[in-house]
């Protein structure tokens, strides 16, 4: 059986039946200074620095990993956290296979923002099935005191959002970072495997016309 699926990014074309390399696009979102850049660098480079600057614009790192015997390239995107930069950051949301939400367990406001980060992502990235799109929540800076958001509270929030997986991490101490990203990769891959197309439209067709919707289910065959 040959099963071919497409996603809207040309970097995520996958031939599932084959052992072809898979590219997973992961977006890290969350308030300024919750540790997005640090988590990314800890996972990819196994390094932590107190001297990271506030992210301006966007950047990404890639890492080769093996998930369920599959060789996978993770492309992890890091964007600026301040709210006003989001109107431009959306350029990077498209084609995402997983969205990682991050808050700082010592800063309650960063937890309160999670809803708006999630909603904003779903609006801008427009995945086909928003309720099934894979999110993962990271409560970062667990090495710091005093803690203001309990595990229970975070987990409750996750349950209310269709059981988002939750990890408590410390980018500084490299605590749970590897496990968290492995889960992120698995969720992203599972999503790619199950969904024919995460997104509503094909980019090539969008360019031709806005009014005309492409066929909604014509992309799979068995």
């Amino acid at each position: 059986m040959i099963h071919v699926s497409f996603s809207s990014s040309k970097f995520t074309a996958v031939a599932m039946a084959s052992r072809k390399k898979v590219l997973l696009k992961v977006i890290i979102l969350g308030d300024s200074s919750v540790g997005k850049t640090s988590l990314m660098n800890q996972y990819v480079n196994r390094k932590f620095s107190n001297q990271y600057k506030a992210t301006i614009g966007a950047d990404f790192l890639t890492k080769e990993v093996t998930v369920d015997d599959r060789s996978v390239t993770m492309q992890i995107w890091d964007t600026a956290g301040q709210e006003r930069f989001q109107s431009l950051g959306v350029a990077f949301y498209r084609g995402a296979d997983c969205c990682v939400l991050v808050f700082d367990v010592t800063a309650p406001n960063t937890f309160k923002s999670l809803d708006s980060w999630r909603d904003e992502f779903l609006v801008q990235a427009s995945p086909r099935e928003p309720e099934n799109f894979p999110f993962v929540l990271l409560g970062n800076k667990v090495d710091l005191e005093p803690r203001s958001i309990s595990s229970k509270r975070a987990q409750q929030w996750c349950q209310s959002k269709n059981n988002i997986p939750y990890f408590e991490t410390s980018a500084k101490e490299a605590l749970n970072v590897e496990q968290a990203f492995l889960a992120i990769a698995k969720n992203a891959l599972a999503q790619q495997n199950s969904a024919v197309d995460l997104y509503n439209e094909f980019p090539d067709q969008i360019k031709l016309t806005y009014a005309q919707k492409p066929p909604s289910s014509g992309s799979s065959c068995c």
Partner: peptide, 14 residues
């Protein structure tokens, strides 16, 4: 105020 505190602590620390 919070944003300034966050950013000052990571501005040109090298």
């Amino acid at each position: 105020k919070t944003q300034i505190e966050k950013d000052v602590s990571r501005t040109d620390r090298t």
